[in-house]
Amino acid sequence: MMPLRLALVPGEPAGVGPELCVRLAQLPRDYQLVAFGDRATLQAAAAVLGLPLRLLEPDQAGDQAGELVLIDTPNAVHAPFGQPDARNAPAVIEAMQRAADGCLRGEFHGLITGPVHKAVINEGGIPYSGTTELLARQAGCDVVMMLANPTMRVALATTHLPLRAVADAITAGSLTRTLQILHQAMQSDFGIARPSIAVLGLNPHAGEAGHLGHEEIEVIEPVLATLRAQGMDLVGPLPADTAFLPAKLRTFDAVLAMYHDQGLPVLKFSGFEHAVNLTLGLPYPRVAVDHGTALDLAGKGVADPSSLIAAADTCARIARARSRIIAP
């Protein structure tokens, strides 16, 4: 059996992603790490940090501190830290797609991704709503975005949509698929045989029995009843303003929020530094940082690598759970 190999994509070359990858490369690890990015950018990040970085060829092991196997994906132009250039958007997307393709072919056991600048990619002429959606299209499957930290796991019924489009996007079919993917991931990736999932309502007070909206009565409650009959442990729909109270939260393995800003601000407030972003439903584990490119910090050597380190640890743990690879 091949050793555990994880693909790593730094993301926006002008952001903090390259620095975070250099810091990750310094840590001891029991898996192989293969980066898809621009050689010169990674070397510049190492110079900023004053840290050693030995970039190796794809056929080398690269499992020692300070080493990083690199599949070079050159930028179109030099991108000084803090100054993104839309001409590099194709290289950012190419790195992501090449790494994900390697996962789909079984060359890697999982994918770790750094922060990407959505606006810059769109300015580069590439329609892009997020990496979650890009990877789902590439793999041809339905996925669920979930953020997690040591305190909670929050999945999303909808992801990067304008708020006025959210209600129409929550259908019986989409909600059923989301809960099925979430339930399965809790079992396969987190080892929870019968996960308890809290499902939030869409409207204030979960619709207040129809007085503040009908989505709970017409869509959410019937879906939950059907899936409960199939054996799922689903609680809700719950009012979002009280579902995250610590006493309640301790009884749930995951929370499903109806839209992006319903659940993620609470999670990030509870533990931003150690939170990670997972894409559930892919044929391979994908774990990302939960923060942006931090252009104002790029090139200064002060960016906190905690989220990327947590993402790598989480990806390795899930990859082992899926493939039963034992750490050496």
Rank of each mutant, 00 (worst) to 15 (best):
L227P: 00
R194A: 15
H260N: 01
G236T: 03
T279F: 06
T251M: 13
Q187K: 14
A240I: 04
D241Q: 04
Y259F: 14
P204F: 09
D261N: 05
F190M: 12
T178Q: 02
L200V: 07
L212T: 04
F269G: 12
A198P: 06
A209Y: 09
Q230M: 02
A229I: 00
H274R: 15
L280C: 11
A198D: 01
R250E: 15
G231V: 00
G231A: 09
A257Y: 08
L179I: 12
L200R: 00
G207C: 09
V276C: 07
E273L: 08
L278D: 12
L264S: 08
E215C: 09
A247Q: 15
L238K: 07
I217G: 04
H183A: 11
A198C: 09
G263Y: 12
F272P: 13
F272L: 14
H205S: 04
G271S: 00
L234K: 09
L282W: 10
M232F: 13
I181L: 07
F252W: 11
R250W: 01
Q180N: 13
L256I: 07
E221S: 15
L280R: 05
I220K: 04
L224N: 08
A225R: 14
Q262K: 02
T279N: 09
L256K: 07
P222W: 11
K248D: 08
V266M: 03
L202G: 02
Q230K: 14
T251R: 15
F244G: 00
A206S: 13
F272V: 08
E208D: 15
Q230T: 09
D189G: 09
I192F: 00
E215A: 08
G201D: 10
L278R: 07
M232V: 06
F190R: 15
L264T: 06
G281W: 12
T226R: 15
A193H: 13
L256N: 10
D253G: 08
R177W: 00
K248T: 00
Q230V: 03
I181P: 00
I197C: 03
A225Q: 14
P237N: 11
A243V: 06
L200F: 10
G236V: 07
H211F: 10
G191F: 09
G207P: 07
G191S: 13
Y259T: 00
A206W: 11
T226V: 08
I217F: 05
N203S: 05
A243S: 03
Q230D: 11
I220R: 02
A240V: 07
M186N: 13
G236Y: 05
L264V: 02
Q180D: 08
H205Q: 05
V276Y: 11
F252L: 03
L245H: 13
L224E: 09
R177D: 03
I197S: 05
A254Y: 06
P246L: 06
A240G: 13
K248N: 13
P237D: 04
G191V: 00
L200C: 15
Q180L: 14
G207R: 05
I181V: 14
E208F: 04
Q180C: 10
G231P: 11
A247L: 13
P237T: 12
M186P: 10
K268H: 11
